[in-house]
């Protein structure tokens, strides 16, 4: 299979007040055509930085090392102008908050036309027609009326549908959905998950779903990548990672999820300790200080990602048992 997005040894460093802050370190990851990747991690894991790097939307204070290749082109060897053209045509995003993603004073139709600004050779009426057709495909009844409405006249779930329709209008090679269901109610969340699953054929590339919700990953994704403190600790097919987690952090994280604990219990599992600060990183394994299965070696040797079954895992217990 061909990779749509290929991250090779990607590191992201921010210029901080007290020196450089290495927020993401050495992430190698390939997103394959037609698959949905779940990018999972807690706060401080670097998942937002990584996503911003894929969209070439990092702030000026950040520098990217390594290569991010989108469909054969190295994103960071392109000029700013070409990168901007790519953002409009080959990448699209669905953001967390459907209430701020749309301009409140512009009609839905106008905004959906504007989303297609990078598409050449289409007249405005054609773009509006495409917008209406896309609204219908994402399950919005009476698209003609909706095109004339303003965002505040739509409910949260409908707005997220409109945002998804807007992202799909350009047939992107990379669609990044950043916590697309977090702001929605449980019953609406399910509809949006099903919609993304149904619409995956519209994306001529791959979808990245950024989330902290393991339930959403299980229901929607093909692959998962687990980030911890700026490093990729485990990646592989959903079934392997969620049901046979190999990295102790993945195991601990899944064990914490109340939805995965069958017997009701007042005492819930936790991951003792805190995430190391990116400016004070340990010498060996990044997770050693909190790990249940830690060995003496873990504090000295940094584990590399190595194949384990269908997954890749960065753990000495797996690579050198």
């Amino acid at each position: 299979m061909t990779a749509i997005v290929d991250l090779r040894d990607v590191s992201i460093t921010y210029a901080g007040a007290h020196g450089p802050v290495p927020a993401v370190r050495g992430v190698t990851l390939a997103l394959e055509r037609g698959r949905i990747l779940g990018l999972v991690g807690e706060s401080g894991s670097g998942k937002s930085s990584l996503v911003s790097a894929m969209l070439a939307l990092l702030p000026k204070s950040a520098s990217v090392q390594g290569r991010i290749v989108l469909d054969g082109r190295d994103l960071y060897s392109l000029g700013e102008h070409e990168r901007r053209a790519l953002r409009g045509r080959e990448m699209a995003t669905v953001s967390q908050d459907p209430f701020t993603a749309l301009n409140p004073v512009v009609r839905i139709g106008t905004q959906l036309v504007e989303f297609q600004h990078a598409l050449p050779n289409l007249t405005k009426p054609e773009k509006l027609r495409r917008a209406g057709a896309m609204l219908e495909r994402v399950g919005i009844a009476d698209p003609a009326t909706r095109l004339n409405q303003y965002p505040h006249q739509l409910s949260g779930g409908l707005r997220q549908r409109v945002a998804i329709a807007g992202a799909l209008l350009v047939s992107p090679k990379l669609l990044i959905a950043d916590e697309p269901t977090t702001a929605l109610d449980a019953t609406t969340e399910m509809e949006v998950i099903e919609l993304i699953r149904d619409m995956r054929g519209e994306v001529d590339g791959s979808i990245v779903l950024v989330t902290h919700d393991m339930g959403v990953v299980g229901r929607l994704c093909d692959d998962v990548a687990v980030l911890y403190a700026g490093e990729l600790v485990e990646s592989g097919p959903v079934d392997d990672v969620l049901n046979r987690p190999r990295h102790p952090y993945t195991r601990a994280l899944l064990a914490c999820d109340p939805a995965r604990i069958d017997t009701p219990s007042r005492h819930l599992p936790t991951v003792p300790g805190t995430v190391p600060s990116p400016t004070a990183l340990p010498a060996g394994c990044i997770f050693a200080a909190r790990c249940q299965d830690v060995m003496a070696l873990c504090h000295e040797v940094k584990p590399l990602l190595s194949a384990a079954g269908a997954s890749r895992v960065a753990c000495l217990r797996v690579s050198a048992p």
């Binding site: 902290h212 393991m214 601990a252 994280l253 914490c256 007042r266 819930l268 936790t270």
Partner: peptide, 14 residues
Amino acid sequence: LDLSVQGELLNLLN
């Protein structure tokens, strides 16, 4: 809250 922190808080309340 992150999943691991959520557990800590709920255990504290308990």
